[in-house]
Design a protein around this nucleic acid. Sequence first.
RNA 1: GGUCUGGUAGCUCAGCUGGAUAGAGCAACAGCCUUCUAAGCUGUGGGUCUCGGGUUCGAAUCCCGACCGGAUCACCA
Length: 597
Amino acid sequence: MNLELTIQNAVIDAVKALYQTDVTAEQVQIQKTKKEFEGDVTVVIFPFVKMARKSPEATGQEIGEYIQGRQSEISAFNVIKGFLNLSINTSFWIDMLNEIALQPTFGNAGVSENSPMMMIEYSSPNTNKPLHLGHIRNNLLGFSISEIQKANGWKVVKTNIVNDRGIHICKSMLAWKLFGNGETPASSGLKGDHLVGKYYVVFDKAYKAEIKQLMEQGMTEEEAKKNAPLILEAQKMLLAWEQNDAEVRHLWETMNGWVYEGFDATYKQLGVDFDKIYYESETYLEGKSEVERGEKSGAFYRRDDNSVWADLTGDGLDEKLLLRADGTSVYMTQDIGTAKLRYNDFPINKMVYVVGNEQNYHFQVLSILLDKLGFEWGKSLVHFSYGMVELPEGKMKSREGTVVDADDLMEEMIQTARETSEELGKLDGCTEEEKAGIARMVGLGALKYFILKVDPKKNMTFNPKESIDFNGNTGPFIQYTHARIKSVLRKAAEQGINFGTKIENQLAISEKESYLIQLIAQFPAVVKQAGEEFSPALIANYEFELVKEFNQFYHDFSIMREENEALKKFRLQLSASVAQVVKTGMGLLGIEVPERM
RNA sequence: GGUCUGGUAGCUCAGCUGGAUAGAGCAACAGCCUUCUAAGCUGUGGGUCUCGGGUUCGAAUCCCGACCGGAUCACCA
């Protein structure tokens, strides 16, 4: 029972009968009738006026008359300018609501044994400092699109490649060794990742001081940066790490261990997780052999200094280094290796990288290189590219101390939610445990929704003060509506009203109600589109529209005071369906919805 | 400079596969709590959809150009 399809076919038939012209389904544009006009569904009739050789109004009238006589769902129609507005029988809407309410997984296609598999890489942190606001956007987007793809029938493997080796972690290690006095997370009370991050900053400060000193002794800035004792020492450490020096390896394992404990806590609080974690220390040597194979096959070439390059000028790009003259690999080489590794480890049908838009070029190149190496999946890699998070003062700069720390931010959101809830008296009569749970759901809901509602590909501004907002187009507004519906449903259950059964369709329902049903019915299509476009924002904005619409409805009717029992059951059923779609939709965004708040 | 990307209300954003009078939220102002949760609802004010051309019945939406902003073009990852 697809309304759009039915009407589309009816219009095609009408045009053929009336004007002896065949039109395709694409030419029949159908949309929800705008609220200010009468009717439920609108057909745009401009495409047919030439065939009819009549005015838009006359054409609309003719088509309207033709299809009303033949389609029982259509109870009335009107024509305004070139728009044919059709009113649909209330019994049709009630049938539709009945159908929706009987589907336990409405809007979520679910995964089956032979579903295709999608691997989604996200998060991918460095182990030298804690997660910040930019990572939050990455993690939320990665988690959300994973959920959305699952709802669209993909098996999803969430993966994280941890950048656990390299000069950056050596810097933290060195600073800790020199200035740390054996400080540990336990002794300092600091979260592991914060402790390691602290020493990264210590290194940077000391390093800068050395540079300054060397410059005063007459070196240029460039020379000073290369020759400062600290950086030389850090490079020595990296070399020792690569040669498996026992002491360095031990320190590295210890400090990374601290970081992982810290990251785990942050991930847990954010509500994200992974199915498979790759560590760069275990994969960074992959890819070299692939590049060498590519050189033999002629896809890449070797220069006189022994470095290996790919010439992409034919693709409108530059030349790209793949192996240094000393034979070591670069970022791109590693990514070639890990891509191959992943396709060996899992039967992947699609690989998605959730990585910021500053790496657009990198992934464009990666895709071409893999293709040149003969991997049939090379071209099909998806770089899910998202924009930067900026602060009102501009970009986050760690040097200027304007980085918004992920843990601090989440804590602040939860705290504010707690205070606001208490001010409003929402938490009266709750146990301490319930209070904490609600504050957590609301605070994090606000943060997640704020970030996910904006188009991923756009840069966004995050105002830490203003974003702690629970009014308007926010997560808490949606959560609140859910809680209120649940409250009504509880009350109905107490009174023993059974609204879970089929609703009779001899009812007079309002246009607002049929509009709501139409909106609910749209949900699966929204989920599908969100999957195709990798856009949690689509779902977020849909949820807001639905909830806003419901709130208006809610204020127009007193469900529990309704005396017509059949109508009361219908409205309860409608409310329950809205709550269901809210819960499912918010779930796709990784946002929990409380039963009460 | 090359490539990519964005420019919609004072602010944050929807709308962009062309359709009706361009929508929300925030902020401002005015109303609504003896009725299922007021984190709500209703109303008012606020727009040269950056600018200029083109395509057509119709353009915020598509095309071309200009202007402004961001990213990137590393033997960093």
